[in-house]
């Protein structure tokens, strides 16, 4: 896994949460939070679904296929949303990319 500057994110991208970044249930506030150094991001259900699938094994394209079937939604739209979402997390240095 390497992290060159501005790794382009597309359907072939394979990522997982970097060490030190984890999804946790926050029972006090009744929400899911993504914890990272000095950051706690409250995630909605869709974001939780995406983060949960980022396993460092499967590409975003493969995961988008699964979501398309699960939610009966157009795959290209799902993939495009996932690329944007993963791009934001990449800028925050929260992911490890498989090279």
């Amino acid at each position: 896994m390497t992290n060159p500057i501005a790794t382009p994110v597309d359907g072939n991208t394979v990522v997982k949460l970097a060490r030190g970044v984890r999804l946790q249930n926050d029972p006090v506030r009744g929400q899911a939070v993504l914890l990272a150094p000095e950051r706690a991001l409250a995630l909605d259900e869709i974001a939780v679904a995406i983060v949960t699938e980022l396993d460092g094994e499967r590409s975003l394209d493969t995961i988008a296929d699964i979501f398309a079937a699960r939610f009966d939604a157009p795959k290209q739209q799902i993939l495009s949303d996932m690329v944007t979402f993963v791009g934001e997390f990449s800028k925050r240095r929260m992911l490890e990319f498989r090279s």
Partner: peptide
């Protein structure tokens, strides 16, 4: 310049 490599607070 360093976005994606290091976060600067």
């Amino acid at each position: 310049r360093l976005e994606g490599l290091i976060v600067i607070d």
